[in-house]
């Protein structure tokens, strides 16, 4: 919270990328997300913070319909991506997930080579015209994942053989390779050591130039460091949403203040 960058962070006004209105999520009888409204801006890092079980990961997963894979999960309300409701029956969740990529809590590279890991998405979606094109995409994505220099000599080595931080950056490169418009990150640094965390945070800041990034994190310092907008969730409610600097220095809701000062959570 005493990070000096917070106050002077530039938050240029951009257009909204995802607009969620009145979102309710149920797991069976449990009401997990209660009437949440959020505007996620383009080319911005938005952080979701809140205590464990507050629904921030659940809400994140509604943004690319990953909750569809859970049978008992029901979603109500509107989530508009570029003005189009992603829960409309016309929308193919598979296509949607190509546009809204996701990076998970634990690095989960496929048991394939580093090259094949990154080429996975482009191959599925037919993004490359030929081998040279694919090589290009892989290199570009690995560079954007800030891992190219470390792996360029061993692209044929298995992705599972990398270190934890490298694996997570590989997973980010893999998500970036499908050229998503939004990148969802579910606690991407929770399994990483401080050095790897710093690398990934730096990477997130770079990614902002091209994508809209939504990150769920348990670390308030991390939210303060990487995000421009912050949403605080508590018990399934969106308590407060606003500029990161404002949330951390001058929260309006007493619950937000209690959380960031460590009294609840």
């Amino acid at each position: 919270m005493n990070d000096m960058r917070i106050a002077e962070r530039a938050t240029s006004v951009t257009e909204s990328k995802i607009s969620a209105k009145g979102v309710q999520v149920y797991y069976g009888d449990t009401h997990a997300i209660k009437d949440v409204d959020v505007e996620i801006d383009d080319k911005t890092v938005t952080a979701f913070i809140g205590p464990s079980g507050c629904g921030k990961s659940t809400f994140l997963r509604t943004l690319n319909r990953m909750n569809d894979t859970i049978d008992i999960c029901r979603v109500q309300g509107d989530i508009l991506l570029d003005g189009e409701n992603i829960y409309d029956p016309k929308v193919d969740p598979v296509q949607l997930r190509a546009k809204v990529g996701m990076v998970f809590q634990k690095p989960n590279p496929f048991p394939k080579s580093i090259y094949d890991n990154v080429a996975y998405g482009p191959r599925i979606h037919g993004l490359a015209k030929n081998k040279a094109d694919l090589d290009d995409i892989v290199e570009k994505s690995l560079r954007r994942g800030a891992i190219w220099d470390e792996v360029k000599d061993r692209l044929d080595a298995p992705g599972t053989g990398l270190s934890g931080g490298q694996q997570q950056r590989l997973c980010i490169a893999r998500a970036v390779a499908t050229e998503p418009e939004v990148l969802l990150m579910d606690e991407p640094c929770s399994a990483l050591d401080p050095i790897a965390t710093a690398q990934v945070e730096e990477l997130i800041d770079d990614l902002r130039t091209k994508f809209s990034v939504v990150i769920v994190t348990h670390s308030m310092q991390q939210a303060a460091r990487v995000s421009q907008k912050t949403a605080f969730f508590h018990l399934g409610n969106l308590v407060e949403f606003g500029e990161t600097g404002q949330i951390f220095t001058n929260p309006i809701d007493p619950r937000t203040e209690a959380y960031i000062t460590g009294r609840i959570g």
């Binding site: 894979t69 998970f104 496929f110 048991p111 996975y120």
Partner: peptide, 27 residues
């Protein structure tokens, strides 16, 4: 095969059978 493999593949916009063919069965 860990669930995270399936999530990873589905999260990249793969269909279920693509996930099975290209990730789960190889794993």
């Amino acid at each position: 095969v860990p669930q995270s493999m399936r999530d990873g593949s589905l999260g990249l916009g793969a269909t279920k059978s693509e996930t099975i063919r290209q990730v789960i069965v190889p794993a």
